[in-house]
């Protein structure tokens, strides 16, 4: 795996909000290099600029100052349409609040990014259907978003983020609205994606989720506070802790076995995809 290739390079990145007396920096001199294939968990207290960082990385927002190179290209020089093009080709978003379009059914939601990539309709629906099958949502294709559980909705959202085979996946508290059981499934999906060579950048409040990451960054007042590499071997050996609050410990413990099964089957069915990419 070409882990040495820097996908994202930030240098002295600043983002200013407000003017005059109300001026403050959400990002204040971020320096960060992210290599291909890393699974990064970004932690930090509320208001430290995590989401702002993610928005800038996803080209939804623009930095006020500093450098941001994506695949070696300075982003601030790009036109709006070019940025939209990059978003459609290289970046997949997973949101805390899922952000499916309520009016569209599951398969149309998943196929939406392909629309903006200019793929014909039949092909689009085929690809969306394939990826939904991989996520064990094959029989939910024609459900409306409100007919799904939270976990299912987020899996649809992840399927949507992945359908255009992006090189970078940006997840903003993907499990923030989910119970621990669903969180676990989602995190298994993400770590599975990571193992297949995708770069994942995840913002989270939950320290337990960091065990899935290969690198944990904590932010404070708009800059990097700590930057820890997690050695995969240790994570593998370490006992998996259940997610979520401790009081719910019993429930997930019971439900765990079938969950693991599903996660492993995901792996099996998706192995051919890995070879393609």
């Amino acid at each position: 795996m070409a882990k040495t290739l820097p996908v994202i390079e930030l240098h002295d990145l600043k983002k200013r909000f407000g003017v005059g007396d109300a001026e403050h920096y959400a990002l204040d001199g971020m320096d960060l290099t992210i290599k291909k294939g890393e699974f990064i968990a970004i932690m930090g207290p509320s208001g430290c600029g995590k989401t702002t960082l993610l928005n800038i990385l996803g080209l939804l927002d623009q930095s006020s100052d500093g450098e941001y190179k994506l695949d070696g290209v300075e982003v601030s020089t790009l036109r709006q349409s070019k940025k939209a093009h990059i978003r459609s080709q290289q970046i997949g978003f997973v949101f805390q609040s899922f952000n499916l379009i309520a009016r569209l059914n599951v398969i149309d939601n998943v196929a939406l990014p392909l629309t903006y990539k200019g793929i014909p309709k039949t092909k689009r629906l085929q690809m969306a259907s394939d990826i939904l099958t991989n996520f064990h949502l094959g029989e939910r294709e024609y459900y409306m978003p409100y007919q799904l559980s939270g976990g299912q909705t987020q899996r649809v959202a992840i399927a949507r983020a992945l359908v255009n085979e992006p090189s970078i996946i940006l997840a903003d508290e993907p499990t923030g609205n989910l119970d621990s059981h669903s969180s676990h499934i989602i995190m298994e999906e993400l770590s599975d994606l990571h193992k297949r060579g995708n770069t994942i950048i995840m913002v989270t409040h939950n320290p337990r989720l960091t065990s899935y990451a290969s690198r944990v960054i904590t932010m404070l007042d708009g800059h990097v506070d700590t930057d820890t590499m997690v050695i995969p071997e240790i994570v593998a050996v370490a006992p998996k802790r259940p997610l979520g609050p401790k009081s719910k410990k019993k429930k997930p413990a019971k439900k765990k076995p079938p969950v693991k099964k599903s996660a492993s089957t995901t792996k099996k069915t998706t192995t051919p995809r890995k070879k393609k990419t």
Partner: peptide, 16 residues
Amino acid sequence: TREIGIRKALGATNGD
């Protein structure tokens, strides 16, 4: 508005 935001995040250009 929210749908517009989602579509843009998924790669829709202003023209789209």
